[in-house]
Each structure stands twice: as C-alpha cells, then as structure tokens.
Design a protein around this nucleic acid. Structure first.
Lengths: 335, 335
DNA sequence: CAACTTTATTATAACATTTTCTTTTTAGGA
DNA sequence: TCCTAAAAAGAAAATGTTATAATAAAGTTG
C-alpha cells in the first residue's frame, strides 16, 4: 500500500539528529541551531518528507486542517452566497497553509469532529443540534452569517437589517410608496432580518406595511416568479420591488420583460448580494453588497486565533453591507 | 482541549471485553458473539463513541475519507460542471457513510495525500504533476472527466466527441450549413474533443470546416459575447451556433435579443451540459446533456472498489451524452 | 576560569487504534 | 464423557508523531 513511506525517523537519521529535533524544527524552524536547520531543510526537501498528520494529531499536535460546515439544502450550489463563502474561506486558508475540510450536510447531519482542528460553521438553517455538540466537545468554532447570541460562541455576521433598511429607504427617497418585498427562506436568520429592515424603513417613513406586498420566495427564482404573478395580479401592483437576493431580483427583470413592463421607468428593483449576475444582463441591477469575502476571511482569523491561543476569547463581529446603485431604480412617476 | 474523549478503552471497559474485541466489532459486528455484540452496541450508543480515525489509520486501518480534487481556476464556482460533480460525489459518498475531503487547488497545488484513503481527481486543467505524484505514492485514484490513456490509472469520462457530433449533425439535418462553434478552454480535454466532434460532423456531411466559424471563448460568457460580435460582423454570419457550454449558449440568446435576431427563426442554438439555466429563460435551450451525476457516482464506486480490494484493477469507463431538443433550434430558411 | 544561567538537544512516554499471535471457549463427533 | 477442531476473545506489539522531562552544550558573569 503506502509505498516508501518517509517518516520522521528517516529524516532524523539522515540529518544526524534526534526525532525530537526534527519535530521541533517542524513546528518552529528557529528553535534549532542554524547548522541543524540547514541540514534538516535539505534532507526534508530531498526526501519529500511530509509529516503524517494522524500521528501528529494522536500525539496531541495540530492537524493543520480546518472544517467549513455548510448546509446541503437543495440549490446550495446555485447559491451565490455559499459559493462565495467557500471560495473566501478556501483562499484565506491557503494563504495560511492550512487545509480546508469542506463538510456539506446533505441528508444526515453527522460530522466527525476528529477530522479537524476547528470549524467554521455556516449551517444557518439546520437546528443547532450539531453546533451544540461541537461546543460541548470544546472544538474551537466560529459561526458565520448568523448571530448566535444565545450560545457561548464567536460569530462573524452581516448587518442584514441595515442593508434591507437602506435599500428600502432608497426606494422611498425615490418617492416609491408601493414597495414589495420578495423574502428568502424564513428558516434562515438573514431572511428574517431583511424583512425586518424592510418593514422598519417603511414604518419610519410612515408608509403602511401590508402583508400582501411581502411574498416569501425562499431565495428561489421559480418561486419568485409565482410570487410576482400574485403581486401584479391586483388593482394596485407595486411600483418597486426589493428582493432578498439578486437571483430573485433578476427574476423580476425577466418577469418585467415578459409582460412588457419597463425597468426602471415603470418598476424599480433592488436585489441583495452583489452577484456577478447583476451586471451580466441588459439592465444592471442595483443591489446591496454583502462583504462575503471579508466575512470568510475574518472567520478564519478568529478561528485560527482561538485554536492557537487556547484562551476562550469570544469575538462577535457584525459587518456592514453596502448599497450599490446601478440602473434598475428610477424615481416614481405617476403614469 | 478535547474534553472527555471517549476512547475504545472506555468502551471495552464498560462492555467488559478487551479493546481487540471492540475493534473487531467495529470492522465486522458479526465477528463477535451475540451477547457481546448486543452489549457493545448499547455501550457505543450510550457513550456516543466515535472511533478516532487518525489512530485507526496509523494502526493500518482505513480513514473513511475520500478526496475530491478539483482545480480552483477563476470561475470554478460559476461552473455548473464542477458543482454538479461535487454534489454528485458528496451524495454518493454520504450514502456509503464515507466522508468527503474536497480539495480545491486555488493557487498552490500542494495536496496532503495522507488525509484520505484515495482520491477522485477532477483536475482537468493542471499539469499532471500532482496526479503522477499520487500514482507514485500508490494512493488509490480515479480520474474523472478526462481520458488519461497515457498513465496507468482508472478513469470515468464522457464521450464529448459524440455529444458534439450529435449536436452538430442535428443542426445539419435542419439544413443549416453555416454553423459556428463557441469552444471552451483549449487546455481542457473535453473542449478539444467537442471541437473535433463538431468538425467531424461537418466533414462527414461534406460541409467545409472554416476556422472563422470556430471561436475560442474559454467557457466564459464574457468572452462568448466578444466572439459573437466578431462572428456576426461579416457578410456571411452563421445561421446556427453550437456552444461548448450552456452558459456560452445562453449568451448567444442574450446577444440575439440585443440585436433583435429572432431565435430560433433566424438563428439556431445548441449548448452543452444541461444546466438548469436552459429552461430558466424565455426560450428553452436545446443542449447536450452530460451525465455528471452518473460520472460522479461511478467514480466513487470504482475508487471504493480499488481501495477495498487491493488489487490494481484499472477500469476505464466512457459514458454517453444525450442530445436534448427544446426550443432554440429551427430548420434553416432562406430569408 | 569556575559557577551559574540560558539554550539546544535527546530519550522516552504517551496518544487510540489495528493486527498478529496466543489462549480460552464453544461445538461437534466418537 | 472426552477429544479435537473451530470459533471467539485477549495480550501485546506496532504505527509516526509530539510533549515533557532530563541532559548536554553554550553563554554569561563575577
């Protein structure tokens, strides 16, 4: 099987030092004298020695592998959000020479915690069963994109309320009054927060909140289509739509195109995410940019700190989204 | 750190057997007598015992983790192909109770082979450096979506030549003669094969192959747009386009929409992949369906077999794609 | 330059599991 | 009931690494 396995013993022998020295060299090269350091560098290179992570972990060392846990809900891989997160975490770890163990909960939510040094938990949907287990086992952990106030755990999240508020407020400054909202999956915290932000903006601007303008489309373009049919099949259709994701917002554009509704002249649209999709089509979509890369990279930093300095220093970061105005919004004009 | 870690020792103690018996129970429950088996089942459940995969591997056992290696080229995560593959492998492994270690080559192509029992190698772009290293280390390995005839390795691939041939041939049966091809990234084998399939279909139907109808758009919709501008800025623009991916084909639809070219009446289009995108827009895109899920699942099966039966039985499978006709093709009519 | 302090190195004991080799138990005849 | 063969269980070695404690080497100071 594993052919000519090069072990720390062989390295030690060829370098003429003890295995302890090799081990120390590996974890901190400057803890061995220059002469030995040079020698070890050479031997390790020559033998293509790679430490055996199992033995290392078994002996109480670090694995050099961080886990990223994300939910495997249908459509996860059409979800800009998840992919951007994976990419962000992946890049960030690679720069730190740490391996990424990406765990997706497809159907079962079993996760073998011994596979990693710590986890970034992005499973925003699932019940907190797994998260609690991880915490109970004292595995270093950072939650991403969810403000888990009720548990003793670090998190890095985005201020979804504020993003939604800003988007809605902007539509109001453009004199829109009948503003609809295409909401995301209600099991997801950020979808809830976006609804709240939307409502707050209306209320503070003395516009009545009406349930018939709030449609739950579960972040799905297909459901968005259905919702739009309902939304526009009334005597007072909205003059603006704020969607909780760009994919749903894009569907508004498609819908408008089909029914010859002019955008932005007859209907204004704002999305959420800043998906490349926004600038792909004919009409460039205005949106709320989520700092996903920053969130991922901060998540990695917080986790690394927690793993290395063993002190349990809980950090809670909330990042600000940014409203990006493009072509899909125009001031309301009585037609 | 790792708090109250439950080990095999504790299980053995509580069940009143030796650790060897527990170990044997774990690898084959029916190798221990009923009384002990029942007892062990109960104790393991009670303690939530999870074997420590590293100690297991160190002692010569299996890890229960398979690797999937994919290239981290820019755009990987907008690539339907890669995502479908990840999903396919993930599901397939979960059904077998095996963990997936997803390794993406972002910038460096370092990969710690000791993290897995074997790998599915989908890095179709990178040089074969890593693949050769894996083979040299005798790590069980299956290549996916690339026919690596020159190395002693199993693979599961799709007959891209045939898919491209069928698509092009279908356009020819619809009386098209000026058929353009939007090609993918030439570094990728399947892009090459699709070009060959396209050319063959033309040649065998006595249509002259012209380089000005073959444009390399690297699987990118932006480059596709540029290519289309060139393609239609001539006195004899194509009457049909066969694109090597649905994303590029979709861009043909956008392009046509912008220039008021009617699809399919004035321009026929066929894509490749069977991306959900195809049925998302106004005009349902005809395409060549790649059996990606099947490929992933077969890849897993072949790898598992290789890992379990140690004999080196090289398997090479080529799956057939399927032409799917929707709305984007019409017979050629002189205008 | 001796005595002491700091720094560098080494020997060795874990770590949790599997495997091989023994030993014990069970089952099946005679 | 005894003997033998087969099945089940156990003891102990081995796996590659790190951490701890002990030792050796190198500096520093009076």
């Amino acid at each position: 099987m594993s052919s000519s396995k090069v072990t720390i013993n062989e390295v030690a022998r060829q370098a003429g030092v003890s295995i302890a020295t090799v081990s120390r060299f590996l974890s901190n090269p400057f803890s061995v004298k220059e002469k030995n350091r040079k020698k070890l560098e050479k031997v390790i290179k020559k033998l293509h020695y790679q430490p055996f992570v199992y033995a290392r972990k078994l002996a109480g060392g670090k694995l050099g592998v961080y886990g990223l846990i994300i939910p495997g809900y249908e459509g996860i891989f059409n979800s800009f959000y998840a992919l951007e997160l994976i990419k962000g975490v992946g890049f960030s770890l690679e720069r730190k020479n740490i391996d990424l163990y990406l765990h997706i909960f497809w159907t079962k939510d079993r996760f073998n915690i011994s596979l990693v040094d710590g986890v970034i938990f992005a499973d925003v949907i699932a019940n907190q069963e797994q998260l609690k287990r991880i915490l109970k086992e004292k595995l270093p952990c950072v939650v991403i994109n969810k403000k888990v106030e009720e548990l003793d755990v670090s998190f890095v999240a985005v201020d979804n309320f504020r993003g939604a508020y800003q988007a809605t407020e902007y539509l109001i400054t453009q004199r829109h009054k009948r503003i609809a909202h295409l909401a995301g999956d209600l099991r997801v915290q950020c979808a809830q927060e976006r609804i709240e932000g939307y409502k707050s903006a209306l209320i503070e601007n003395k516009i009545k909140v009406s349930d018939k303008y709030i449609k739950v489309a579960n972040f799905s373009y297909l459901e968005a289509r259905r919702c739009l049919e309902e939304l526009f099949d009334t005597s007072s259709p909205p003059t603006a739509v704020f969607a909780a994701s760009d994919e749903m917002a894009e569907e508004v554009l498609n819908f408008a195109n089909r029914y010859k509704i002019k955008i932005p002249e007859q209907l204004s649209v704002i999305g959420f995410d800043d998906n490349p999709l926004c600038i792909q089509g004919e009409i460039k979509l205005s949106t709320v940019r989520q700092p996903l890369k920053e969130m991922a990279s901060l998540g990695v930093d917080v986790l690394k700190e927690q793993i290395e300095k063993k002190k349990e220093n809980i950090k809670r970061l909330v990042l600000s989204p940014q409203l990006i105005i493009r072509e899909s919004v125009a001031p309301f004009k009585r037609s």
